[in-house]
């Protein structure tokens, strides 16, 4: 597959994943063309995070394959911005971001690097870019949920993968910061493909080329953004019986384990 632009071509075919006995993803297939911006939408618990973790290499598929330009990807080729809860709370924002440099460092220097201060390097630049220039030396457990989210994004961007993934980068953010984060991703990602899991329908349709709707571990639709109808979106979220019309503004979505009325049984 020739690829003159230098931007990679991601192919996911027939990927299935079971986690502790239940099938979380079944036979997921799609392709991401060079430079494409894709939103993966769907209610909580449909497998968006699992899909991203499979792509990032944090999990291995039980069946199917993931290839970049026809070959299995290098460990750090696909960089996922995990949710902000996966940062190390006792360390500073800067130390957490500098973890993104680990792939390019080895030996003793690589082991000690994130412990060092580091003044004007790229990690500090990225923190400034996500609006946390004044928080570099603040411990992560003293940051708000939204600020942690941005630290996690900076960490993934520092790792410099050729394909960028983000898991709910706008969760816990106010509407203004939400669009500024997506704008930031857009700028920093450049010509690289971008795949973002989102809860927010409006953001998905306003800022991406393509929308993949997920329901119950499968792909419900996969359309260019112009072809996505309101009906399709409504169906997606209605499938989750206890969900809300606008999950992103609801205080919290019901936990899947509570389905079946455990209170009354």
């Amino acid at each position: 597959m020739s690829n003159p632009s230098g931007s990679p071509f991601l192919r996911v075919s027939g990927v299935t994943k079971r986690l502790s006995g239940t099938t979380v993803l079944s036979a997921i297939s799609f392709v991401v063309a060079p430079g494409e911006r894709i939103a993966v939408v769907g209610p909580s618990g449909v497998g968006k995070t699992t899909l991203l973790r499979l792509l990032a290499g944090g999990l291995t598929p039980d069946a199917g394959s993931i290839t970049v330009d026809g070959t299995p990807p290098d460990p750090h080729q696909l960089q996922l911005a995990y949710q902000g809860t996966t940062l190390v709370g006792h360390r500073t924002a800067l130390a957490n971001v500098r973890v993104g440099e680990l792939a390019t460092q080895s030996g003793v220097a690589g082991l000690l690097a994130p412990f060092g201060g580091g003044g004007t390097d790229r990690a500090t630049e990225l923190l400034r870019a996500v609006g946390l220039g004044d928080k570099t030396d603040t411990r992560v457990d003293q940051l708000s949920a939204g600020q942690r989210q941005r630290v996690a994004i900076a960490r993934a961007l520092l790792a410099d993968g050729s394909i960028v993934l983000a898991d709910e980068p706008t969760a816990n953010l106010d509407p203004q910061t939400r669009s500024s984060i997506l704008e930031l991703l857009d700028t920093v990602v450049g010509s690289r493909p971008l795949l973002v899991a989102l809860h927010d329908i409006a953001l998905a349709t306003s800022r991406f080329d393509r929308v993949i709707g997920m329901a119950d571990g499968t792909i419900a639709f996969d359309e260019p953004v112009a072809n996505v109808t309101d009906g399709q979106m409504a169906d997606l979220f209605a499938a989750d019986s206890e969900s809300h019309p606008h999950p992103s503004v609801a205080p919290s979505s019901p936990s899947p384990t509570r389905h079946g009325g455990g209170w009354y049984g």
Binding site: R53, G58, T86, L87, L102, A103, L111
Partner: peptide, 22 residues
């Protein structure tokens, strides 16, 4: 928390690095 470690490991860190920093 395994997800915290996973987030460090998938950056491309070696096992020892992921243990030290995750």
């Amino acid at each position: 928390d395994p997800l915290t470690t996973e987030a460090v490991a998938t950056v491309g860190a070696s096992r020892l690095q992921a243990v030290c920093h995750g």
